[in-house]
Design a protein around this nucleic acid. Structure first.
Lengths: 382, 382
DNA sequence: CAATCTAGTAAGGAGTCCTAACCAAAGGAG
DNA sequence: CTCCTTTGGTTAGGACTCCTTACTAGATTG
């Protein structure tokens, strides 16, 4: 609402931001090249580079040796701008990455988890993966982005257990675990939301501002992208569709998660879906398989009717251990095409989409931190 | 992503914007008062006011006569900055308003519609209401915001007819009807979305970033507010919940609109809900009424389960001819409180909320137009 | 009437960006 | 090899915006 007050300092900060963002897109450039790319005059760029060098954000990386003309100095982002930590936590293990402001993955580590490991083990695995990473790539982490295979509380970043939904990773508090290793804020969200972000940037929803990504695996999840942004809702629980009322076997109304209970497709003593049995039953090419497929398609169709009514997506992406299977996607797509408001249904394609999405967010946040760190104190070094 | 290029012109534009926005919040101010409010120095404000007076956006409105100290000149937005048109279209008639950049309603007019009037009549009523308005208040309309009691196509602004949903106003194209009367863009959305905007600004959801507004009247609608903004989706059909699968009588799964067909609560030869019969049946204080209330509460509960799953609201607002009634709101609220993810349910309170919301948007757009018109050509008048 | 308060202007300075001109050094053409 | 072209970078000067300080004009208050 209220526009900011005009000042010469703001202009200077804008120039510095131009320089920094240009250097984020290119590994190294001479001052003349920066001037050409930004459209800002060479003297002004020289001033800005001088300031940024003094404050330690930009460093001289030696002379240009190829090409004609006078040799110039190359400049690049200094190593001291730090990196971002990206972590993906699934019931099977933890993957951690160090990413720099260019988006380059500097190092990667993995720490496995057994199927019966609880949240303590997950926390240890996360910590050890980060330790390994820090040993391999000695940079300071200025922020962290975490993907977890469970609902995430928007305020605290903790994983939360909803009734009647499996708690795959368990009661984990990534911000607290990571605090010793990371200088700044830790961003946590669930894997489906990060995957949707990836699909939006470079997957099958590239450039689509409004879509829904349905994840059907051991858990049931959904990401809602609206006006180009993943929506999280008040608690961060957008897309937790276990309790959504839909069509069950025989046309009875029931909650989505209860459909699988009614079909005997839950793992023993758990609310997780027994994906092995489910895929096996579907694979049997008999009447029973066809019937199961029809029941599932109708139940998923009910969920999609809710998505269409409340999110009005341009397309629906189906993913997850069994949701992405050709049989299911086709059945859902066909069933859904006959509804009053059909929407194209496609299967997800990216691999490790949750890491792609989390990485994109991490780079974005790191870049914004760097730009902001240039603004307040130009700092007069030697 | 790419920051804008720094320039002195940008600073000057920022100063002008500060002056203009300050004058939008106050009917008239001296240059010294503007300087005090913006925090910008008096000489700079004097320059800016000189520029804006020359370009006709600001006008001298005479001398300050009260208070001590030297008399100063009052300045205010010039009349030539124009006004915005606000129109609300319901099956019962058209209301039109002229609003200035301060948010003051300059004039209002109304044009009635009979219950059997079609879209041609609606278009005529809209045109005549605007004519009447123009006669009463001779300003140029630089933009228009329209509220209509039907779904609106996001791209074209036309009203659209969805299957199995009543078409209350009918096939109307407000942008085309208003084009001769309005200089700039025409923004159209349905009444529930505008009402939600009003509740967000000054109603029972004031300051709540994530909520859902359910409208239960002749038609069934819903507005989804996420991260402080009304979400419209790809086609602009977010909240069209007629085809959402929910719980019908006897626990059978069916689409929301079909619940009313099953209950015999539709108007003859129409998909509109017979609100008169509905409220009459509810008013009878017998077993049948209690049963109907329970069935409706369960059906609405199914819709809310979808809203919770896909929008994660902090609260739900119930409105509409019968949705806002105490009996229904209480029954829904009680039924919903027992679900796995309960959310507070409150009844809507504002009157004519759709006009309040549309007006707010109109003022916002008009202000932004004025600010933008100052930027490009400072223009040297006499 | 003097003191005080407010509105507005004038002068000068700090700071940012730009253009134009210049210098320096390397590659290529003859 | 020499000269020309090309490129990187600096210097000088100017345009412009905003600020602080000091001043004037005109009204009220004591």
């Amino acid at each position: 609402m209220a526009p900011s007050k005009p000042s010469l300092e703001m202009l200077r900060a804008l120039t510095d931001e131009n320089v920094l963002r240009t250097l984020m897109d290119h590994p190294r450039l001479t001052r003349a090249e920066i001037a050409a790319r930004t459209g800002i005059s060479r003297p002004t760029i020289s001033d800005s580079v001088l300031r940024l060098s003094a404050s330690g954000l930009v460093a001289d990386t030696g002379e240009r040796t190829t090409g004609r003309g006078r040799v110039g100095s190359y400049y690049a982002l200094a190593a001291s701008v730090g990196a971002a930590l990206v972590a993906g936590i699934t019931p099977h293990g933890v993957t951690a990455e160090a990413v720099d402001a260019h988006g380059t993955v500097l190092a990667r580590s993995h720490s496995g988890l057994g199927h019966n490991d609880g949240p303590q083990q997950a926390a240890l695995a996360l910590a050890s993966a980060v330790d390994e990473l820090a040993a391999a790539s000695p940079v300071t982490f200025r922020t962290a982005v975490v993907s977890a295979a469970d609902p995430v509380d928007r305020d605290t970043g903790r994983l939360v257990h909803l009734p009647d939904a499996p708690f795959l990773v368990g009661d984990l508090d990534p911000p607290t675990v990571l605090a010793p290793h990371v200088q700044g804020a830790v961003f946590v969200d669930n894997d489906v939301n990060w995957a949707a972000r990836a699909e939006h940037h470079q997957g099958c929803a590239a450039g689509v501002a409004d879509f829904v990504h349905l994840h059907l695996g051991e858990g049931l999840g959904c990401a809602v992208v609206n006006d180009g942004t993943v929506r999280r809702g008040h608690h961060g629980l957008v897309g937790e569709i276990a309790h959504l009322w839909t069509v069950g076997p025989g046309g009875t109304a029931m909650m989505f998660t209860d459909v699988f209970a009614a079909l005997g497709l839950r793992r023993p003593a758990s609310t997780a879906i027994d994906t092995a049995t489910l895929t096996a039953r579907l694979a049997a090419d008999d009447d029973e398989a066809a019937q199961l497929r029809a029941v599932l398609a109708r139940a998923v169709g009910g969920v999609l009717s809710a998505a269409v009514a409340l999110a009005d997506p341009r397309m629906v992406i189906l993913g997850g251990e069994w949701g992405g299977r050709a049989g299911i996607a086709a059945a859902v797509s066909e069933q859904f095409a006959r509804t009053p408001r059909p929407v194209p249904v496609v299967a997800a394609t990216l691999t490790s989409p949750e890491l792609v999405g989390a990485r994109a967010r991490a780079v974005e946040e790191l870049r914004s931190l760097i730009v902001r760190s240039a603004a307040p104190l130009p700092s007069d070094a030697t």
